[in-house]
């Protein structure tokens, strides 16, 4: 735990307009709010597609935030991981009760950083892209044309085949891919080179979910991520990287909410 935080004190992250999309249950059952954090290129819309309504239907107030430069949030071409984490913490602290953070893809990397600045009730890392060379290697092998430009500050392009299983109709998948934006060049580089996150405050339980057939996150990365938090990953074979948009989106979100109900939170 680091008490001296000159970064936070001397150069606070500048505010930017922030998009938060929400679906709340009709009746407040006292369940904790869940805040979804999309990965690079995605915005809050990715969760607004299915997961928000579904979580609200099960009694959880559900929210999704677009980190700056993503979705409907303000532009931020020079944003760093720290700025994204700031957006997540701001969104979390603006909700009436202690929240559960759910980060997808590189959003999990952002959530890890947010956990050091906000005592979440629990955290879920879904298909977490926590960076490192193994993930980079896999991406280069599968999609060199979309990955290599990112080294030079270009946009990291993920293909339809990396993100979705074959169960998603081509037209729909194309539609999603068309909506993807980009993270800042700096944040993309930080995927490869970043300091380890500070330890989470408040000791929240952490769940890792993913798919062994994910073409972005290799299974070994899932296992090692889960091991860091003292558990094993919860796996959904046959699904692509974008668990929340894939044809069988219902299974992972139900598993996450079950875990929360069972006292993960």
């Amino acid at each position: 735990m680091r008490l001296i935080r000159f970064d936070d004190w001397a150069s606070p992250v500048p505010p930017v307009r922030r998009e938060v999309r929400s679906a709340t249950p009709e009746l407040d059952e006292g369940k904790p709010p869940v805040l979804f954090v999309p990965g690079f290129g995605h915005g809050a819309w990715a969760f607004a597609e299915f997961w928000l309504e579904h979580a609200a239907g099960r009694g959880f107030p559900a929210h999704a935030v677009s980190p700056r430069g993503h979705g409907g949030s303000g532009t931020a071409p020079k944003a760093s991981l720290r700025a994204y984490a700031h957006d997540v913490v701001q969104a979390a602290a603006s909700l009436p009760r202690q929240v559960v953070l759910v980060g997808h893809g590189a959003g999990a990397l952002v959530v890890e950083r947010a956990l050091a600045r906000y005592p979440a009730r629990a955290a879920v890392l879904a298909a977490p892209v926590l960076g490192g060379w193994a993930t980079f290697g896999a991406a280069v092998r599968r999609n060199p044309g979309g990955t290599l430009p990112a080294i030079f500050g270009g946009r990291l392009r993920l293909s339809r085949r990396q993100l979705f299983s074959r169960e998603v109709p081509d037209a729909v998948a194309k539609g999603y891919v068309g909506r993807l934006g980009r993270a800042s060049a700096r944040a993309q580089w930080q995927l490869l080179l970043h300091r380890a996150p500070e330890p989470a405050v408040g000791d929240p339980p952490v769940l890792v979910v993913g798919s062994p057939d994910d073409r972005v996150v290799p299974p070994s990365a899932l296992t090692s991520a889960a091991r860091r938090y003292g558990g094993a990953p919860l796996l959904f074979p046959g699904m692509g990287h974008d668990l929340m948009l894939d044809a069988r989106w219902r299974e992972p979100i139900d598993a996450i909410l079950d875990w929360l109900e069972k006292g993960g939170s």
């Binding site: 935080r5 936070d8 004190w9 606070p12 505010p15 930017v16 922030r18 700031h86 913490v89 701001q90 602290a93 603006s94 600045r117 906000y118 005592p119 405050v201 408040g202």
Partner: peptide, 12 residues
């Protein structure tokens, strides 16, 4: 930044 609790920021 000097006034808020370090784990519960004041609104932007």
């Amino acid at each position: 930044p000097f006034t808020q609790f370090p784990d519960f920021p004041m609104p932007d």
